[in-house]
Design a protein around this nucleic acid. Structure first.
Lengths: 225, 225
DNA sequence: CACTCTGGTTATAGCCTCTAACAAACACAA
DNA sequence: TTGTGTTTGTTAGAGGCTATAACCAGAGTG
């Protein structure tokens, strides 16, 4: 509807770019992003080396594009869950979406949340997607966070440091805190799981993930320890 | 005392290996592990390319060595904290040690906990170090975990899946759960912080870290939400 | 002293990224 | 239809990397 390519040349160009990215994802799945080779992709597509530089200025541009697509895909998954027919998903729903998305393609997850490349700075339009993502999370968190109990010290810090939550100027600090907690705790479990740090330990990461989700939403009543 | 090199040849060999690793760390700090170049290191040391292959069979062996050293260093930090003169450090102490160690050299942290290299499997002696680490954590967690409250579902799972906690056969499931929680939650915050995902958000990662530490040790009483 | 083992050297193969120079094909207007 | 500029492909090549091979000098050792 929007970006429908005008000229057939543009059209073809887009097709090739897409095919390149497709092969790129395959390569990444096989040998990781650092081993991605424009040359190999070109050969795979039956064209010779430098041809690809007509489509991507350099390796970095391709990778940036992949990162953008990855972010976009995650954001879309969140948005779809949020505005899907079946009522609001709630934090548990978002958590499920997040894990599903991550397991679907771990390398894609690490492209976003893995080891940063020194010197790399995401272009502005990518960070925009990530704030889009955060907006959905904040929306859900303001709905989930009950009317303020007495704020803990970090809540008080957040009350004064909420630039990142500009999309929800009325969300209480406890909601911001909840969003950060959701993000960091689930990332903690997921990234350890996907990196294989649980393999051989004999525990079921899915259950651990669920346990964390439960405790994000309803912190233990004082019974425990 | 132990590994004191016998022959002066061995001695020299070790010196060179150490110098190589040193330059390697510098390179990693500058351009990340994936950009590490044996060639460049060799030149930096005034010798020509292939010479280094007398000391390391290949790039992978060097990196493995760096990973080993990284693990060793973290484990030693934990052990030192645990058996240091000033009484047991407790979970908060370990958390402080962990963060200090991570900030000291983020690339070293990511060498252990960052994006995994597809196909790479850590040799057995490295995983041994990581269980050493886990042992210190478990020790502290059994001391910290109060006598069992009623176990949550994941506790029950852990009761049957505790191979990884072989060092502490008598630790209650709640202690194992606590250890996992410590590990994954703090990794969550740290890895987001070190990867720069908090930059520009305007919040203080150190405070968030502290907040998480607090909630690991004393989950919110039912007041909150 | 001779002999071996070690640590260095150059040469080379085979990857890679990326630039330059050139050729064919296409789009389109006169 | 013919001419012209743009796009997309080609090969050649510079310069980087890993890694192997072949060779040579010096250190230890019988």
């Amino acid at each position: 509807m929007t970006g429908t390519t005008r000229t057939p040349r543009e059209r073809y160009r887009q097709q090739v770019r897409e095919e390149v990215k497709e092969k790129a994802w395959q390569q990444i799945a096989g040998s990781g992003a650092s081993a991605l080779s424009l040359n190999a992709i070109a050969k795979q597509m039956g064209m010779s080396g430098p041809a690809l530089y007509r489509y991507f200025a350099n390796r970095d541009e391709l990778i940036t594009e992949l990162i953008r697509d990855a972010y976009r895909s995650l954001a879309d998954a969140f948005i779809a869950a949020d505005s899907g027919g079946a009522g609001r998903p709630g934090l548990a729903g978002l958590a499920r979406v997040l894990r599903g998305w991550a397991l679907e393609d771990p390398h894609r997850y690490f492209l976003i949340y893995g080891t940063p490349v020194p010197g790399y700075h995401a272009p502005q339009d990518i960070t925009a997607i990530s704030t889009e993502l955060m907006a959905v999370l904040l929306e859900t968190c303001t709905a989930a966070a009950g009317p303020a109990a007495e704020p803990d010290p970090f809540d008080r810090h957040l009350a004064d440091h909420r630039e990142w939550a500009a999309s929800h100027p009325d969300a209480p600090p406890s909601a911001l805190h909840l969003a950060l907690t959701f993000w960091s705790r689930l990332h903690g479990v997921l990234s350890l799981e996907l990196a294989g740090h649980f393999t051989g330990m004999g525990l079921d990461p899915a259950l651990f993930y669920e346990a964390e989700v439960d405790r994000i939403m309803t912190p233990d009543p004082l019974t425990a320890r």
